[in-house]
Computed example of a mutant assay.
Amino acid sequence: MGYTDQRFDVNLSILYTELPLLERPAAAAAAGFTAVELWWPWIETPTPDQSELDALKEALEDAGTQLVGLNFYAGQLPGPDRGALSVPGEESDRFRANIDLAADFAQSVGCKALNALYGNRVEGVDPTAQDELALENLVLAARAADRVGAVLLIETLNKPESPLYPLVSAEAAIEVVDKVNAATGLGNAKFLLDLYHLAMNDEDLHAVITKYADKTGHVQIADKPGRGAPGTGGLPLEELLDQLAQAGYEGYIGLEYKAADATASFAWLPTEARAAK
């Protein structure tokens, strides 16, 4: 199959960051892409003013780009945080305040995937209590996502870069996915399969795809080492994406890698293959 048969989107929270947020959709469109994704764009608040939401919606529409993935509020990201939903106190409250607002914004722009980062372990707090809080909040998020016709994504991160994040294996994330689906009965919790993070955890990527492709709701890629564009490291990304497609995955593949020059970094992908099919 190859890269030309896949559906790609640009993560505008890690690429084109030298530009103001509202200019990034147009930059991705100028490079030939029609689909984009975002971490929660307003890291300082889970509840931005409606005018800010409207401005982002307008920027997406003016550029002709479809938002295909959005994070719920996740604390300081980029920064020290890796989510808020399992962190007791103010951060959990902020996550809950964000749930319906993020879901409603996703609905307003036709976004069908909402990612909920689990959050770091907190010193002095019982991990079991954090997991119970996480499940409560993920159930609320799954119901909100279902209300707007979206899936809820659960993501594995890598231990070297996120040592306090508890979901550092595909199996750990899948366990949470299954718990959320059992609690809600909705079946809309899915695995966010990030090949870079899994590779950094030394997982067998082919085995993960074989085992969990049917539970995967979104895919993200970067090469290893360095978290650069495909071809800058040693991961067989084209082969792995072919395997995903053969296993039945038809969703988007988010380009969540680092590049000093985003447009130049897309040289591995023919221009005619960048528009989402």
Rank of each mutant, 00 (worst) to 15 (best):
V125P: 03
K224P: 00
I43Q: 10
V109T: 03
I154H: 02
I43Y: 00
A97T: 11
L198V: 02
Y165C: 09
P80S: 08
L152C: 05
D5M: 07
H206G: 12
Y16A: 09
T210C: 01
A182T: 15
N188V: 03
S92T: 13
L255M: 15
A63V: 07
A259T: 02
E18I: 04
P88M: 13
R24V: 06
G79I: 06
A106P: 08
L241G: 02
T4W: 02
P166M: 05
E61V: 07
A213R: 04
Q220L: 03
G233W: 01
L192P: 02
T65Q: 07
R143D: 11
E272I: 02
I253E: 01
L164I: 08
G234T: 13
L164D: 11
P236L: 04
Q130L: 12
K190N: 07
T65L: 05
P236H: 12
G254F: 05
E23I: 00
E272L: 01
L193P: 00
L85F: 03
Y16K: 03
E250M: 02
G248D: 08
G119R: 07
A145V: 09
K159T: 13
F8N: 09
Q243P: 09
A276H: 04
N137Y: 15
T271F: 14
A29Y: 00
D131Q: 11
L241E: 02
V109W: 00
L195Q: 05
D214C: 00
D81M: 13
G228C: 11
V122R: 14
T271H: 09
R147G: 12
E171L: 10
I154S: 08
D5E: 15
I99Q: 06
E52G: 08
L138Q: 03
P88G: 15
H206R: 15
A144C: 13
V168C: 12
A275W: 00
V151F: 03
S51V: 11
G234Q: 11
A275S: 12
D204Y: 09
E171F: 10
T263E: 14
D62S: 15
L198A: 14
E58C: 00
A222Y: 14
L60A: 11
G89Q: 10
P78H: 10
A245L: 04
L164N: 14
G124D: 12
T128G: 14
A222N: 11
E91G: 00
G75D: 06
A172V: 08
A97Y: 03
W39S: 12
Q66D: 13
T17P: 06
A247C: 12
L38Y: 13
Y73L: 06
N137D: 13
L53N: 07
E161D: 15
A276D: 05
I174Q: 03
D146R: 04
L152H: 01
D202Y: 11
L19I: 08
P80Q: 06
Q243H: 06
D93A: 15
G64D: 04
A142S: 09
W39L: 15
E171W: 10
E155W: 00
L12N: 08
